[in-house]
Write a protein that binds this DNA or RNA. Structure first.
Lengths: 344, 344
DNA sequence: TTGAAAGCGCTAACAC
DNA sequence: GTGTTAGCGCTTTCAA
């Protein structure tokens, strides 16, 4: 059996409290006592029982991260950044997948599994204004994504609209006039897809290019095959497409494949830009221009805000007003939008 | 404050035990009583306190998954599969990253954070024979990867050697004679890289092709840029390479990029095969031939075995002997190894 | 600076 | 079928 505080105390000939003080590196322990206790801890290989500690203290040291799917490259990289940021604060991360399913997202917020968690970082995809009430939970919650609802939650997001606009303007500056947008979600008007589509439209409008609904490719999820399928369908319409805005990199890479299959050269015939700044965009052929949303900063900020909320809650301090953080993005220009077809 | 069992009991006018029986859906509860208790649970919004439950029962319902990096696509997909398999059994997954660092891997096995966990699925990368003793831990542990050491742990793996051999034989059958291997680890002789290199050599030998050390590309990690860099270096040696075995898909996709930059067409000039069956290999241009290692089955088996060990431990049953599961692989032929350059 | 003791919420004997 | 009760290992007043 694993050694307990009591065992260590007995072994060291002191009380349980003293051992606890040593474990927590509190002052007011005589050096000699501390040494004896330390020795006993080592001999017994004592490790605190985290279940007991959290039962008593009300904290588990674990935070939840809920994303649609970890295997989507954007969320894999996000998870990586969140885990790193959490580790730096001594927190562990428990990952939940929602599958971008509305019911799963709803249930998640009330899931008993969250009991094991001090707070949650949630990247919703399916929820809409109707579900805003569900976000009023009694544990610390940080939402990744625009502050689309009026809720008491903290939000951390990039400026999707401005970034999408910048991406589209980049295509326009490269000479494109018939620009397709791949990745729209039918009926959505608050999520990332909707905001990015709005940014796309804003750029067109500012450039005096008419918005053509036929140039918008709708998809279900943001997988590669969705991008490829939507692109193929758009190409079949024969609309003279000379530029493509992929609403994320995965879609754009799928679209790249479809463009190649249909005999269109990128960037000579069609220029293409993605969104997310995935590592792999660097290694595509041609390499893919994209928007770097500052994922590391998003993760770090979300973890910090959540951690502050957790402390606030435990210490009983009064709740600071909820905040919205917007991180900076950056446009990365690569081969897929170069004027000439020359490779790096 | 959250409602407790006691609160529910009081509200329903029954004892704590009865409530517990209802919560656990045990028999021997009168239907009318059950209804009353259920109503009280709903009214109070009662949720069991998982910390208390695990302190008492010694189980947390959480399993750990330790991988080098979740953002490496293979591990992202593996994590996805493990999370799905765990969910099917009512288990939650806590992800630990080792960064492929030896010290981190060693520490992980003794980490107090594992206290929150009933058992661990561990995909080691840096550990070697020297560290075999560390695997003798007192909690359920399933190793992903070959049973390279003689340990009391269960192992779940594919047959790396046979699969690598099959991949190489596929290149040979396609007419390649100067086949490079990208992704070897210097000094390793037990891990996946070493086994796959052995498979590669076995295939060459069986075909009567001399092994040429200069055709082997060494890398640190298995990232895209490692594959690209190693490939570039190999090409500079001007060895007449006509085939490339990427030890995983990510490396192969990096190599694909480097081949393109150097003006080599795939598959016309050089044929290329990867390893892992990543979803994205389907959408590369050209699409990448690869080995599907049966990731879903690996994940499902690992979770099942771990779950059995956990039950065994809790029930006090005697420990069944440790096992090794080998899953089936499958070679997926795509454009990158086609005889002609015709696209699908 | 250290010790004693209460209790976090739950499970599982054991009693009725 | 249902109730009582003793801890699981820890934190934390309060007292010494």
């Amino acid at each position: 059996m694993a050694a307990t505080l009591r065992d260590v105390a007995r072994r060291a000939g002191v009380s349980i409290k003293t051992v606890s003080n040593v474990v927590h590196e509190r002052e007011y322990v005589r050096d000699t006592t501390r040494a004896v206790v330390r020795a006993a801890i080592d001999e017994l290989g004592y490790q605190p029982n985290l279940s007991a500690r959290s039962l008593r203290s009300g904290r588990t040291g674990v935070i939840g991260l809920a994303v649609p799917e970890v295997k989507l490259p954007y969320f894999a990289e996000l998870a990586d950044s969140v885990i790193a940021a959490a580790k730096a604060r001594g927190l562990t991360v428990l990952i939940e997948q929602t599958g971008a399913d509305l019911d799963t997202e709803r249930e998640l917020l009330r899931s008993p599994r969250l009991q094991l968690t001090d707070g949650l970082i949630f990247s919703p995809l399916a929820m809409s204004q109707t579900d805003v009430g569900l976000l009023a939970v009694d544990y610390p919650l940080v939402i990744l994504g625009e502050r689309i609802f009026d809720t008491p939650c903290d939000h951390v997001a990039m400026d999707n609209l401005a970034a999408a606009r910048a991406a589209t303007e980049h295509l326009i500056a490269a000479g494109c006039r018939r620009i397709a947008a791949v990745g729209a979600h039918a009926g959505e008007d608050l999520g990332s897809a909707a905001l990015r589509l709005r940014g796309y439209r804003a750029a067109l409008e500012a450039a005096g290019i008419a918005y053509d609904e036929r140039l918008v490719g709708y998809v279900g999820l943001w997988h590669r095959h969705d991008g490829a399928a939507a692109m193929s369908e758009l190409l079949e319409r024969d609309l003279g497409i000379d530029g493509v805005f992929g609403m994320n990199d995965t879609l754009a890479l799928g679209a790249l494949r479809a463009l190649g299959e249909a005999g269109h050269r990128v960037p000579e015939d069609v220029k293409l830009i993605g969104f997310d700044g995935l590592d792999e965009t660097r290694y595509a052929s041609p390499s893919l221009s994209t928007i770097d949303p500052g994922r590391v900063e998003i993760a770090r900020t979300a973890v910090r805000v959540l951690h502050e909320r957790i402390d606030e809650r435990v210490s009983g301090a009064k709740r600071a007003p909820s905040v919205r953080y917007t991180t900076d993005y950056e446009l990365i220009e690569r081969e897929s939008t170069r004027g000439s077809g020359i490779r790096l």
